[in-house]
Computed example of a mutant assay.
Amino acid sequence: MIKVLIVEDDLGVARINQRFVEKIGGLQVVGIATDEEQSKEQLEIFEPDLVLLDLYFPDMHGLQLLQHIRLRHRHTDVIIITAAKELDTVREAIRGGVFDYIIKPVIFNTFAEKMKNYILFRKNIEQGNRQVDQEQVDLLLLRRPQEKIPISDLPKGIDKLTLEKITLYLEQSNAAFTVEDICVRIGSSRTTARRYLEYLVSVGKLKADVSYGTVGRPERIYRTVN
């Protein structure tokens, strides 16, 4: 079980987060802390694997506790759950090494997706040898390991390595893109790039819209499905 510590000054919100955690297998809430003293004490006692951390407290800022965790509890991961939307705050949290950042109000489906990604992340770093290949490094840096489509389910003409290369690119970019963008990224022909993109549309990973360029020619624009 992954041990989870909830650090949230609003006890009602903390209880909601606890119920959310308890709905997801593989996670166990070991404590709830509502201030700086309780947080540091429970970090020492429970040695949690994951801290769900708010940022606003009467006696501290959550980023200060994040720094404390990075210095004193290096094997503890942190997911921020906060109403703070300021870009500078998000950047500082990312630079501080947070695994993820969830903006309140929290919807269970979003929460569950983030937690399942974290569980997959833990499995990825705990399995096998202490050496990794490039694919595992890419997943660790992304911090969002994805369930892979079984190779046996891939249709003829869809290569596993090429598909994973395209999927990795999609995970790194939230912008809309065209067939030409993929051609440049993976060094393929338009026909090959289109085949893979249409496959991803068919399995629900992408959606496609038609756009008309400056000369009025229709062009398919692809976007990831959130």
Rank of each mutant, 00 (worst) to 15 (best):
Q38W: 00
I182F: 08
E126V: 04
E47Y: 02
N109V: 10
I94Q: 11
V13R: 01
K160S: 14
Y212K: 06
V137L: 15
M60T: 15
V203M: 05
K160L: 04
R220S: 08
G128E: 15
L53M: 12
L206M: 02
A175D: 14
F57Q: 05
Q28N: 15
L63H: 01
I79P: 09
M60L: 14
G62I: 04
D181T: 13
I149F: 11
D209V: 04
K165L: 15
F46P: 00
E180W: 05
I81T: 07
V215L: 09
D77R: 06
I182H: 08
Q64T: 13
R185T: 05
T34Q: 12
V30C: 13
K148S: 13
Y196F: 12
S188G: 06
V29C: 04
I45Q: 10
R74N: 11
I79E: 03
R19Q: 05
H61E: 15
E147S: 10
R185H: 10
D77T: 00
Y169H: 13
K23A: 10
F177C: 02
V7Y: 03
L71R: 06
T224K: 13
S173Y: 07
V51C: 10
F99L: 06
T192V: 14
V98G: 09
R70D: 12
L154K: 09
Q134C: 02
R217A: 07
V225R: 12
H61F: 12
P150W: 11
D133I: 08
L161I: 12
I166H: 08
P155W: 13
I151D: 15
L52D: 05
G204H: 03
K123A: 09
